[in-house]
């Protein structure tokens, strides 16, 4: 079996939060309780989009203590392969869907004396659950959240009104940005740093912290790479003896699954390492998009992460 255990759900509520972000809430079809989860966990949402089954990861942003429903927030990506567009345009209240059990690749380090959270845009979602978890245990946390404008800052009003002293907002439209160097400078020993947002923001925040002498072990970040569309290509699956065409808007992993070949996965965002696949033969260019393989491994042309990476060339043979 690939991925984790599955849960059959019905869409119970759809809330438009702003021009780009919509919240989807789910109830279990069998009436049982949802499994609890830890703040920062994600679920994989299966979408039957025509002939393709898309499986996209979204952070669970509901209260981890609430076992009656799960919630995710989806930002519409008009340039993407269509997963978020499918959620926005095709999913209706009372539709049946399939979610995976929660998986956490961005959990809190509960040894921290203080949790310092940096969110950018839709990167707020894992922090929503983490804040609820920490509140329950009287944890010491602080959130710095930057968004394009007040009208595009999902959940900012709720967060500020519930935690006026712990939540700090920064809007591009007001030319306000996080003064990270000063913020990091005064933090007490034992502080852990968590970052979720666009790649540029993560690189910037991690770089600053490292330059100021913060150890790697206290720096945590999560960046879900949505698989990017790309040129169609063909792949030969050697173990199952199948020649598969990968379409423009599907990932290599999705194409493998479409052909009925079972392949392991967990995060589907290039982060967890589960789908690592051995390359038997390759003539052409690898388009490595993951942040799992080391640069050395990428150069070796012996491994690929099919959840996000692609190929451009004549021949690709995988051990799958």
């Amino acid at each position: 079996m690939s991925g984790s255990e599955k849960i059959n759900v019905k869409v119970s509520k759809i809330v438009l939060l702003n021009d780009l972000v919509t919240r989807f809430e789910f109830k279990r079809i069998d009436g049982e309780l949802f499994p609890t989860f830890s703040g920062g966990a994600h679920t994989i949402v299966e979408m039957k989009d025509g002939g393709i089954t898309r499986r996209n990861p979204y952070s669970l942003m509901s209260d981890p203590m609430d076992q009656h429903s799960y919630a995710i927030s989806v930002r519409r990506d008009d340039e993407g392969r269509g997963g978020s567009l499918f959620m926005h345009n095709n999913v209706k209240v009372s539709d049946d869907m399939v979610l995976s059990y929660p998986v956490n690749l961005f959990s809190l380090d509960l040894r921290a004396k203080k949790h310092l959270m940096i969110a950018g845009g839709i990167g707020i979602t894992p922090f929503m659950a983490q804040i609820k978890q920490l509140d329950r245990s009287h944890g010491n946390w602080e959130l710095h959240y930057s968004a394009r404008s007040p009208s595009l800052s999902a959940y900012a009003d709720d967060l500020v009104s519930m935690h006026p002293n712990d939540v700090h907002m920064y809007y591009d439209s007001e030319n306000k940005s996080i003064d990270l160097e000063n913020l990091l400078d005064g933090q007490p020993l034992g502080t852990h740093l968590y970052i979720c947002g666009p790649k540029g923001m993560i690189d910037w925040a991690v770089g600053q912290a490292v330059n100021l002498g913060w150890p790697n072990e206290v720096i945590h970040y999560e960046e879900f790479l949505a698989p990017k569309p790309g040129k169609p290509f063909q792949v030969m699956l050697s173990a199952s003896n199948k020649l598969v065409s990968v379409g423009e808007t599907e990932s290599l992993l999705e194409a493998i699954e479409r052909e009925g070949v079972d392949a392991p996965y967990l995060c589907r965002g290039g982060a967890c390492g589960q789908c690592e696949t051995v390359v038997i033969e390759a003539e052409g260019e690898f388009i490595h998009m993951d942040h799992w393989l080391e640069d050395k491994e990428k150069l070796s042309r012996k491994k690929i992460m099919p959840c996000v990476s692609r190929f451009d060339g004549k021949t690709l043979v995988l051990d799958r």
Binding site: D185, Q187, P188, L189, L212, G213
Partner: peptide, 10 residues
């Protein structure tokens, strides 16, 4: 010294 130090201490 440790409890009164800030992050970035080596």
């Amino acid at each position: 010294t440790l409890v009164s130090s800030h992050m970035g201490l080596q």
